[in-house]
Amino acid sequence: MKNHIKKFRSTAKLSQAELAKRCKVSRQTINAIENDKYDPTLQLAFDIACVLGTTVDELFISESIEE
């Protein structure tokens, strides 16, 4: 699953560590999600979207939809 977390995080001027802290996960988790190495749980996806002031639909793109 592709995502736009890095773009939204940069716009919000948040580091990976700060986003992780606000979402109650490790910085490594945020890094893995941004680099498409890990798909977050639905709850974490909603938490990230909330912190970044957007929706899950705006953050995540299903690869099957892109094709």
Rank of each mutant, 00 (worst) to 15 (best):
S62C: 13
Q43L: 12
L52G: 01
E34Q: 08
I48A: 00
T11I: 14
A17Y: 09
K21Y: 11
C50W: 04
L42F: 12
R27N: 10
Q28M: 09
R9K: 12
V56L: 03
F8P: 06
T11Q: 12
D39K: 11
S10L: 15
L19K: 04
D36V: 11
L52P: 01
K13N: 14
K6M: 09
S15R: 03
I61Q: 13
F46E: 13
M1E: 04
D57Y: 13
L44Q: 02
D57V: 06
E34S: 05
R9L: 07
E67N: 14
I5L: 08
A45V: 01
E66W: 03
K37W: 01
K24V: 07
T41D: 08
A32H: 10
V25E: 01
E67R: 12
Q43E: 15
E67M: 11
V25L: 02
K2D: 09
D39Y: 00
E34A: 07
N3T: 03
V56F: 02
N31A: 14
A32Y: 08
A45W: 00
E63W: 09
V25I: 06
V51G: 04
H4C: 10
R9Y: 05
E18G: 05
E66H: 09
A49F: 00
C23H: 05
T11N: 10
S26V: 05
F46Y: 09
P40T: 07
R9T: 07
D57K: 12
F60H: 07
P40N: 03
K21D: 12
S26H: 05
E58C: 12
T29F: 02
F8Q: 10
A12R: 14
K7M: 10
V25N: 01
V51R: 00
L19A: 06
V51T: 04
M1T: 06
R9G: 05
R27S: 09
T55Y: 08
Y38E: 02
S26L: 06
E63F: 10
Q28N: 12
E18A: 10
K6N: 09
T41A: 06
Q16W: 02
I33W: 06
L44P: 04
S26W: 03
A12G: 03
K7T: 12
F60Q: 02
T41W: 04
K24P: 05
E66R: 11
V51L: 01
I33A: 01
A32P: 01
V51Q: 05
Q28L: 09
S15L: 00
E58A: 14
F8T: 07
I65E: 15
L44H: 02
K37E: 08
I65V: 13
H4L: 14
C23K: 00
T55G: 09
L19N: 04
N31R: 11
A20C: 02
R9D: 07
F60N: 07
F46R: 08
R27V: 01
I5G: 07
D36E: 15
A32D: 15
S62Y: 12
E18C: 00
A45D: 03
I65Q: 13
N31Q: 13
V56S: 07
R9V: 08
